[in-house]
Design a protein around this nucleic acid. Structure first.
Length: 989
RNA sequence: GCGGGUGUGGUGAAAUUGGUAGACAUACCAGACUUAGGAUCUGGCGCCGUGAGGCAUGGGGGUUCGAGUCCCUCCACCCGCACCA
């Protein structure tokens, strides 16, 4: 009986759909497991083989956990708002809602073919009003909350108002509020003033600030959406601009976001990335008086190394620093202005591209607060306005940048670390003993840090200070395709909409052009502006910051997620997705979770317990080389040939195995190539004695990977597909074939290296495809896609099928009792597969299936008692074939998830496997002796049978006690200890 | 520059706490059955050597009876951050 995977998969997918087989109930009585994939942005490009990798892994894990008796939540949805759909709308005039819907339909049909167990009843779509109603609602919670630094949590803004009304801002003084006020003063402020102050506390707030403005996209971008000075999407230039924007006060959560990393199971790399992004550093802010005592001007710098304060040889302030204008001396004014103009002329990208040392002296001096030394103040690009105070104290002997600057401008360098500084480069050590350092002379630098900070605080010229690289996140976009803000503006005051007015639906627009003065398209709609509604929309990450909660209770129209239900499903047990969201989505959703937790709306403050980052599947491109010869009539080497003497042959494509030795930087060594070509007796048109060929150049061209078998190109198909190459002559060894060069690149349409899962599913079936994707290697590892090898997995499934079915008979499964040998095969496999599945090592689990199948085939074992448990396990990996075989068996062990839910097949511990099949050791430790390899002085000598009584505890003890070894050595005691690791015995004599 | 990771056959890769390195698969070679097969099956397959045997986990060194695994050092590649004071 044939393994007719096409029929089988079609049938079962239909059956699953009709019976809603994967519907998940919020059944509080059962243990839960929440397995989540990062939901996709439904782009128009469709799926390539890299996309489903994570979904397959999570699907296998979900099905496995379900087998083990867990109530598994494994949902899928769409992150549907975003820039590309809107760009597409601008270019093609198709409404984003329409194109998104189309893309989703495509996506869904591709996913369905792979046989996932998603509960589609729980599908979420961030662009649907039913969903974004709650995104807006959560935004209002953020807007109506502030971070209470006393209690270290978010609280309702009312609590803050109450505090203001009783004690003013004595307790809660925001970083932005410079002036203290009393309760009475607060009460006297008009509403505008009060609201302006409150805005400085809200977790979602509106304010003026430097933002990343992308002209091409017509919007601002968050820091994580800007990569190397260009936009992450599209790669357009980004400039700094001062604009009124909405922000998320994520900086208040910096410490908790850091601490939270200790509680979650993320990779070191991921934790590192988030830690770097938050960029916490501790140090001090120190005030230096500028110029004379009377000037009253002072310069605040931030430093992590107050211990080096006597090594300060100059100060540097950022070009944008407010003191620039105040302190520049008359003599230096011209130079300073010129430098500032120069800096302004350079954009972000230029600054990053060439980091040259530049700067100018202000003419002003700061005074070292300890010894009154005059320190020149410079302006330089390398000090950033946005970090710390925008000013630094430069210590050239300890900081390489300061060192290079000092050398460049001939500023004398003070050495405070003795021999640790060699005059060649700075040494940032903290272990040196301080010299030339007044009252901290002789101290180790590490210890001096604290001493100096204390002294600074005593003198009232500075404070201990923690700094973060992370900035508040820009939360508004001048775009159409996003959630509208539930905000109404009146007299310059932002008022939240009433909850009852949600969702504030996105209105229809006819044009996606930006509104006046850099506003979003919503500003073009009179009905919208008439109501004074906010015209910006929320960024892409708004909807994705909380979607994992909505899956739990997707149809609730009373609340974003019922508290009882979120208490049940709780944290995501395992979250699977790429690393590209390391500092965007993952940080934002962690922050939102913490806010919701603080406001007592959910019961946990970290969304994801464990994170698995799937590797990128790269494309493996195939390239052929097309060579053009240019020849001339007669021997005119070195001369300019007349046109009519010129011959341009038809291009030839030369097989890579013939050409590779003869190509050097894209040029072809003609004589070598000709020798080669003549060896294959190739005649080129026009290639005769009449012409001298003086140049040839090879151009690599991508060819469609699907027309290549391994490295061998199917020339006929290629010519059919690419008409422009129809008259190219192909030169290759006909006994082998025409070979292409391979290159690992990103999978993309233009590289012609996209492998579509649909094609593979069509050819080998979904089960083969699923298992092959897993068999490729560890899920976390990036690797180029290679379809070679899928045959092996397919063969395995056919082989497995043949264990159950005969040539003609439907089933050849018998009811015989298994032998010990067969049981051992089974239990070895169960143990390995369960272990591997649990720890996400799917590639080795697939191997274990193959080994078991091979061995059972060798044993000609068709016994139900052996095959059935294996079949159950395989159902996690290859659900279609297993359903079919179960159906054929008419088994009492149900495979359909519906029945699992009823608990029919589940054993006491929730595991069919554990309940019915004790492990091999449990059943067969009746063995009386076991053979151990024995090595003497590190060399393997023999195996030794050692008697074992059932249940004997540790072999190590056993060996030492009954001295089998001694006996074997002829009574001589071994010189050294015998090391036994339950696997091997080593003897030293 | 800083941080993280990886390095094992022709290829993808195994080796759970230090215990017979290369499982499983693919490619390749040989063979069987076939009218034929891109079906199925058997054998071989790290390198050197006819052989016994020797050498092999990026290079070098160390700890250990024993190292792919632990330590030191150097090299190569990948990823992330990058004037963050």
């Amino acid at each position: 009986m044939e393994y007719d995977f096409r029929r089988i998969e079609k049938d079962w997918q239909k059956k699953w759909k009709e019976s809603n087989a994967y519907k998940v109930e919020n059944d509080f009585s059962r243990p839960k497991c929440y397995v989540l994939d990062m939901f996709p942005y439904p782009s128009g490009a469709g799926l390539h083989v890299g996309h489903p990798l994570g979904y397959i892994a999570s699907d296998i894990y979900s099905r496995y956990k379900r087998l083990k008796g867990f109530n598994v939540l494994h949902p899928m949805g769409y992150d549907a708002f975003g820039l590309p759909a809107e760009q597409y709308a601008i270019d093609h005039g198709i409404h984003p809602a329409l194109s998104t819907e189309n893309n989703i339909r495509n996506f869904r049909s591709q996913l369905d073919k792979i046989g996932f167990c998603f509960d589609w009843d729980r599908e979420v779509n961030t662009s649907k009003p039913e969903y974004y109603k709650w995104t807006q609602w959560i935004f209002l919670q953020l807007f109506n909350s502030f971070y209470n630094r006393q209690t270290n949590r978010a609280e309702k803004i009312e609590a803050l108002i109450k505090s203001f009304e009783t004690v003013g801002n004595a307790i809660h003084h925001s970083a932005l509020t410079t002036h203290p006020f009393s309760a009475d003063e607060w009460k006297k402020y008009d509403e505008k003033k009060q609201q302006d102050i409150l805005m400085q506390y809200r977790l979602a707030y509106c304010g003026y600030g430097e933002v990343n403005w992308c002209e091409a996209l017509g919007t601002v971008l968050a820091n994580d959406e800007v990569v190397n000075g260009v936009s992450e999407r599209g790669g357009y230039p980004v400039v700094k601009k001062k604009l009124r924007q909405w922000y998320l006060r994520i900086t208040e959560y910096a410490d908790r976001l850091l601490e939270g990393l200790d509680k979650v199971d993320f990779s070191e790399a991921m934790k590192e990335m988030q830690t770097n992004w938050i960029g916490k550093s501790t140090g001090a802010e120190v005030e230096f008086r500028v110029g004379s005592r009377e000037s009253g001007v002072s310069l605040r710098v931030y430093t992590t190394r107050p211990d080096t304060i006597f090594g300060v040889d100059f100060m540097v302030i950022a070009p944008e620093h407010e003191l620039v204008e105040k302190i520049k001396s008359k003599e230096q004014t011209a130079a300073v202005d010129e430098y500032i103009a120069y800096v302004k002329s350079r954009n972000e990208r230029e600054r990053m591209a060439e980091k040259k040392i530049s700067g100018v002296f202000t003419g002003a001096y700061a005074l070292n607060p300890f010894n009154g030394r005059e320190i020149p103040i410079w302006i330089a690009e390398y000090v950033l306005a946005g970090y710390g105070t925008g000013a630094i104290m430069a210590v050239p002997c300890g900081d390489q940048r300061d060192f290079l600057f000092a050398k460049h401008f001939n500023i004398p360098i003070t050495n405070i670390i003795g021999s640790h500084y060699n005059g060649e480069e700075a040494n940032p050590t903290k272990d040196a003993i301080l010299e030339n350092s007044d009252f901290i002379n002789g101290m180790i630098m590490k210890d001096a840090i604290d001493v100096v900070i204390k002294k600074i605080e005593q003198m009232g010229i500075g404070v201990r200070k923690v700094n973060y690289k992370m900035r508040d996140a820009a939360f508004s976009r001048q775009r159409y395709w996003g959630e509208p803000f539930p905000i109404v503006w009146k007299n310059g005051i932002a008022y939240p909409l009433d909850e009852k007015e949600l969702p504030l639906e996105l209105p229809h627009v006819d044009s996606y052009k930006p509104g006046p003065e850099g506003e979003g398209p919503l500003a073009n709609i009179p009905a919208w502006t008439a109501k004074n509604l906010e015209t910006n929309t929320m960024p892409g990450y708004a909807g994705s910051s909380w979607y994992f909660l909505r899956y739990m209770d997707p149809h609730n129209d009373k609340t974003f997620c019922d508290r009882k239900i979120s208490d049940y499903w709780n944290q995501v047990d395992i979250y699977i997705g790429g690393t590209e969201h390391a500092v965007g989505h993952l940080l934002y959703s962690r922050m939102w979770t913490k806010v919701l937790y603080d406001l007592n709306l959910i019961g946990f403050d970290e969304p994801y317990k464990r994170l698995v980052n799937q590797g990128m599947i790269q494309g493996s491109s195939r390239i052929i080389f097309i060579i053009d010869f240019i020849g001339y009539k007669g021997n005119i080497m070195g001369h300019e040939a007349a046109n009519e003497d010129r011959l341009h042959t038809k291009p030839v494509a030369v097989s890579y195995d013939l050409i590779e030795d003869y190509i050097d930087d894209g040029d072809v060594s003609i004589s070598n190539l000709f020798n080669r070509l003549s060896a294959y007796s190739v005649t080129l048109k026009g290639l005769d004695s009449e012409y001298n060929f003086t140049s040839a150049s090879a151009v690599g061209r991508h060819v469609n990977i699907n027309l290549v078998d391994g490295f061998f190109l199917n020339i006929d198909e290629f010519k059919k597909e690419r008409k422009e190459f129809s008259d190219v002559e192909f030169i290759y060894d006909t006994t082998k074939g025409f070979t292409c060069k391979s290159e690992v690149e990103k999978m993309s349409k233009s590289k012609l290296n996209v492998v579509n899962p649909d094609d593979l599913v069509m050819k080998y079936g979904a089960d083969t495809f699923r298992m092959y994707e897993m068999f490729l290697g560890p899920v976390e590892m990036s690797k180029p896609w290679d379809t070679k090898g899928i045959e092996g997995v397919h063969r395995f499934l056919k082989k497995f099928w043949r264990l159950f079915t005969g040539e003609t008979e439907r089933l050849i499964v018998t009811g015989e009792e298994p032998t010990a040998e067969e049981l051992k095969v089974l239990h070895t496999a169960i143990k390995k597969i369960e272990n591997d599945t649990e720890r996400f090592s799917f590639n080795t689990a697939v191997s274990a299936f193959m080994i078991a199948t091979n061995e059972l085939t060798d044993l000609k074992c068709h016994k139900r008692k052996i095959l059935e448990p294996l079949l159950i396990l395989l159902s996690a990996y290859a659900p279609h074939i297993t359903e079919e075989l179960y159906h054929l068996l008419g088994s009492s062990y149900p495979l359909s998830p519906d029945s699992y839910r009823d608990g029919e097949g589940a054993g006491a511990e929730g595991s069919i496997l554990n309940a019915s099949y004790p492990t091999f050791e449990e059943k067969y430790v009746k063995e009386t002796s076991k053979a151990y390899p024995v090595s003497v002085n590190g060399k393997l000598r023999t195996t030794l049978n050692i008697s074992l009584d059932a249940g004997q505890p540790e072999i190590e003890k056993l060996v030492l006690e009954n001295a089998v070894i001694q006996k074997w050595l002829g009574g001589k005691p071994p010189k050294k200890i015998i090391y036994v690791k339950n696997k091997m015995i080593n003897v030293v004599i």
